[in-house]
């Protein structure tokens, strides 16, 4: 097996081993019902994590994701409940706002040569502050469309429900994989993450790509916010705190290098599933505190970062073989 796929294989192995462990311990675990719930519960994190994958692949980071999700839920609640804007129009508006917000961050990062960490940290405060500006209350959304959308689901064999939000997440992951591996934009993201200067010398449009990456991340965070709004039927400015860190964790556990240039969108999907698996285990167990999720994720993160380091050192030691013709 190619060494490139080792982090991905390790992640997959962890997922399979974890699932087997849970299935052996809890007889009801291996069911489509559990799977459906797991996908639904993690849909918004997963959608945001796809955007984060592109950001990290390009060697950057986006800390504003959680705040953008919160802003989106508050914006939707205020727009739909207090201003009476039709939900679909509100969805389109908030996606446009999020997209512009991300583009602005990307532009700052590119043209002012600012570190993404600082720019998106500012973005994080800004978006969170903006949602407080709209309202400090938790506003429930009672629009009938929310109920209707919540009922949309595919019934799976064994009684599980594949909800609309889960389907949206799966679609986003599929689209993310196509974007990463089958388009010039994707190739350019990997190129910038590999070496920005070289990429520029090779003719990669750095400006357009950088702006595009952060725009993509924020837009997907906006979409994650819509999903979160549908999932909770409420808008609250303190929602989704720390979600950006969960997405970063999922990306890294999924085998993407934090330094950029290497990784897979599919890996992020596995990373999300592993996090969901841990949560589900704790729910099933019933006696464990939910903080054990954080501890388990922390341990996994350490393990994967070390694994990546070891693999990289191994790479530089053994050059690939070439046959002379």
């Amino acid at each position: 097996m190619s060494r490139r796929f080792m982090p991905l294989a390790a992640t997959l192995a962890v997922l399979i081993a974890g699932t087997l462990f849970c299935a052996l311990q809890f007889p009801n675990f291996a069911s489509t019902r559990v799977l459906g719930n797991l996908l639904t519960d993690n849909a918004f994190v997963g959608i945001a994590a796809v955007g984060m994958t592109f950001v990290i692949l390009s060697g950057g980071i986006d800390l504003s994701v959680g705040s953008v999700i919160a802003f989106t839920t508050v914006f939707l609640a205020v727009a739909i409940e207090q201003l009476g804007i039709p939900p679909f129009l509100a969805f389109a508006l908030v996606l446009a706002i999020a997209g512009l917000f991300g583009a602005a961050m990307g532009a700052l990062i590119h043209w002012f040569r600012l570190p993404p960490f600082i720019v998106t940290l500012a973005g994080m405060f800004l978006a969170r502050g903006a949602s407080f500006l709209l309202t400090t209350d938790s506003i429930p959304v009672n629009h009938p469309l929310y109920g209707e959308l919540g009922d949309v689901a595919i019934r799976m064999a064994g009684g599980g429900r594949l909800s609309l939000v889960a389907m949206v997440m799966l679609a986003v992951f599929a689209a993310g994989m196509v974007l990463a591996h089958l388009t010039r934009f994707g190739a350019n993201v990997y190129a910038i993450g590999g070496n920005r200067v070289s990429a520029e010398l090779m003719g990669v449009p750095i400006a357009r790509t950088t702006v595009g990456i952060y725009m993509l991340s924020s837009t997907l965070a906006g979409l994650a916010g819509i999903v979160f709004s549908l999932y909770t039927s409420a808008g609250y400015s303190l929602a989704a705190t720390g979600v950006e860190l969960d997405t970063i964790a999922a990306v890294v556990i999924g085998g993407t290098l934090l330094t950029g240039g290497q990784g897979y969108v599919f890996g992020t999907f596995i990373g999300i599933l592993i996090q969901g698996l841990i949560q589900t285990y704790i729910t099933f167990d019933g006696t464990l505190s939910s903080w054990w999720t954080k501890i388990a994720v922390g341990v996994l993160l350490f393990a994967f970062i070390v694994l990546q380091r070891v693999l990289i050192l191994g790479w530089s030691a053994r050059p690939a073989t070439v046959a002379r013709v």
């Binding site: 591996h181 010039r184 990997y190 190129a191 090779m202 990669v204």
Partner: peptide
């Protein structure tokens, strides 16, 4: 060049052969 990309990607970056709009 870019060590993280494949040999093929390095040779064709920016001028990848396209098919139905995809690389």
């Amino acid at each position: 060049l870019l060590p993280n990309l494949s040999v093929a990607q390095n040779l064709f970056l920016g001028r990848e052969p396209m098919r139905f709009g995809f690389v």
